[in-house]
């Protein structure tokens, strides 16, 4: 028996080695192993905090009792919560739409600059995007500052009275959206510029031969060729804008009253400043379903176009 068993065991070990060897040679295995550090990093820095936030959102205020969805039910009954939902949507949608329009227009301008000077313009236009928002927003705060507003100083020269930039709800909303657009439009610009450069020149030549006007070239050539990049950029920006914290925090701290509170800033106010971490987590988690719906629509549209192609 032993004589027979010994070669069998060796053969099995050999097979296993060969199997492992084959597995290691597969492209997918190598790809997985190479991506593993990143997967682990995402697991530690994204998945764990996300799961922990969900756990926290299901605890009572003193974090001593599991209350299930009680905190979510509680929020539904709060007027301030619905104000925050409205403001977050208004802030994110308005900012993303304007960022997209400005980014599209500026990308066209930059695209039409001769390539020699284009790099300088690209660099300069990216400045608002590369400065840490907390820092650049401080500069905006001084421009809007109640006591020292540079804008009001300029307006005063034209006989226009001081504008309560951060003191009135409508102006404060305008201010935070404006700063977000200023900081975020360069991202759209650079993405659209990359997309523009990838549109084959022959399509424009063919359109020109057909007598297409400039707007027709944009409508029938540029936009269809850029649709996917527009959708992906909009989705990415929507997520980041929805989760904005620093601009509002520095500029208005959510005020006046609660007119500029967003999910992130209100969650911070409740969770960290007021010591109700479960409710703060709960507020912040409300971004997930809203963004998931937006992402589902946008990604479905992209994949449908992909299958059409």
């Amino acid at each position: 028996m032993a004589d027979i068993a010994a070669p069998t065991a060796t053969a099995v070990a050999g097979d296993r080695r060969t199997g492992l060897h084959r597995l290691m040679q597969r492209k997918s295995t190598i790809a997985f192993l190479m991506a593993l550090p990143l997967i682990l990093l995402i697991g530690i820095l994204v998945l764990y905090p996300a799961c922990y936030a969900i756990w926290l959102a299901m605890l009572n205020k003193s974090m001593s009792k599991f209350v299930g969805l009680g905190n979510f039910q509680f929020l539904f009954k709060r007027d301030t919560f619905w104000d925050v939902v409205f403001q977050s949507c208004l802030f994110a949608i308005t900012a993303v739409v304007f960022k997209a329009i400005i980014g599209f227009v500026v990308a066209h301008f930059v695209h039409n600059i001769p390539s020699k000077g284009q790099r300088k313009w690209r660099g300069m236009l990216l400045v608002p995007w590369v400065i840490p928002p907390a820092m650049s927003t401080l500069a905006w705060l001084w421009l809007f500052d109640p006591a020292y507003s540079a804008f009001n100083w300029i307006l005063a020269h034209f006989g226009i009275g001081p504008v309560p930039w951060l003191g009135e709800a409508a102006w404060a909303r305008f201010a935070v959206i404006l700063v977000n657009i200023w900081a975020g439009a360069p991202f759209f610009m650079i993405m659209y510029l990359a997309a523009l450069k990838s549109v084959p020149e022959q399509l424009y030549e063919a359109a020109a031969i057909d007598g297409a006007a400039w707007w027709q070239r944009i409508w029938y050539v540029t936009l269809p060729m850029m649709r996917n990049i527009i959708a992906i950029t909009a989705l990415f920006s929507l997520i980041v804008t929805f989760a904005n914290f620093d601009i509002v925090r520095v500029l208005t701290n959510g005020g006046p009253l609660t007119a500029t509170q967003l999910f992130g800033t209100w969650g911070f106010k409740l969770g960290i400043e007021s010591g109700d971490i479960p409710l703060g987590s709960c507020v912040v988690l409300f971004m997930v379903p809203i963004l998931a719906v937006a992402a589902a629509f946008i990604l479905r549209d992209i994949s449908r176009r992909g299958s059409e192609v």
Partner: peptide
């Protein structure tokens, strides 16, 4: 002042 609601 008019803008005290925005003061920090």
């Amino acid at each position: 002042p008019d803008d005290v609601a925005a003061w920090d």
